[in-house]
Every structure is written in C-alpha cells, then in structure tokens.
Design a protein around this nucleic acid. Sequence first.
DNA 1: ATATCGATTATCT
DNA 2: GATAATCGATATG
Length: 227
Amino acid sequence: MAAQPKPVQLRLPVPLKRTFFERNPQRVARELLGKVLVRQSRGLLLAARIVEVEAYLGVKDPAAHAAVGRTPRNSVLFGPPGYAYVYFIYGNHYCLNVSCEREGKAGCVLFRALEPLIGLEEMAQARGVVVHGPGDLPRLTSGPGRLSDAFGITRSRDNGCDLTSPDSALWIGHDGFRSSAILVTPRIGITKAAKEPLRYVLAGNAFVSGRKTLPRFAQPRSARTKN
DNA sequence: ATATCGATTATCT
DNA sequence: GATAATCGATATG
C-alpha cells in the first residue's frame, strides 16, 4: 500500500500591516506571539516563530530606552510604527525591537525568543554552535542576543528596517498559526519597573528563554569535601 | 576626556 | 547561583 503523501501545511507568511503595530505595546506584544520573523538576504532564507516578547511602554516606562527622551540611539522608537529598533548591549549582543504606537509616541516590543522553522543549519552556523540533538535547538534562538545572532541582526544592517515590507531583508508575517495559551510574567533582566507583568510567552513552548527550560546544571555537589 | 552602566550570555561551581 | 567579558551610548567635568 503506497504511503499517502503527507499534506503540506506550510502557509507562506503574509506581511503584517502597519496598523497592526500602531497600537499600545501590550496589545502588539500579545498578538505578535505566533507570528513569523523572516530574514531574506543574498539568497539566505530564515524563518522562525515568535514565542516570547516584552512590551516597553515609552517615555513613562522607567525600564524603556525611550525613558531618557529622544536620542540618536533610540530615535526609531519615536518614529512611525513597524520599524526595527536594534541596540547593542553588554559589549556583545544585539537586541531586536519593533516600534509601536503612532508616530511621535515611543512604545516598542522586544523579541526575546523564537522557534526556528526554516534555515536551522544556517542559524547554527551563525551562532557558532553544533546541534547534536533536539535538546540543543533552543541554543539557536532562545534569548534576545541569541536570536539576533542566529539571524545576523546588527544595528548597522537592520536598525530602522521596515518590518512590514516583504521587500525588507527582515520582516514579520502571519502564517495562520493560532496561539493557544499565553503566559504573562514580569520582564527579565531589568532593575527599574521590574515587577510589571509585560513579558508574554507561548505557554509550554520549549524555546522560551529563562532558567526554567534550560538549567543544564542540576549536578549534585560531589566530593567537595576538603581543600 | 573620562567614568558609568546596561532589555545578555557563557562558563564555572 | 555567581561572575567575567566587552563596548557604545550617555552623562558629567
């Protein structure tokens, strides 16, 4: 009996409209879960599902870069919605955000983790890691610095990029995915406004960042008896 | 001109 | 759980 070909259920992502981003960051963050981030450049194609984001509320939010007012670094945040704000942090890492709210108002959403869909090998190469099994996959795109690394995102290449245009080297699309349960928690890695529930994750997704899913150090304290 | 500080990650215990 | 690494942006003198 010939095997039935498995029906292809890959829907090509359709770019999100600018009006999607022209709303408050909480709303955009929540609805961004399950959408697809696409990288297209020089024959490279990468795609990954958005599974963890954080909302930053603009000038009134002490944890937001916009809190200091408009500067050369954060000016994208004060521009129109749907554009990439990329910043460099801790001397090592880039982080990707998308601007929200109408022009002149500075909300944004930070991308914290993705689930790889297309181009896993290229992501591993960009990250400089070897994937031995499924357990290694989160190392590709779990964490804001890692996902930027996997996608080759830098400030010089991508800051100010229009994320609503499929002609951009980086854009966001919708492929019909319906997200199920969404978890809301405090944001990670900040000291100001550290308790506000503004982090949104797809519940139970293996690619969400944080110690819960990637501890890797449950070693018993062996023979540390003397010194 | 110089000091401070991160929306992080890897690595060690 | 703790800490070093690393550098651009920003604030201050």
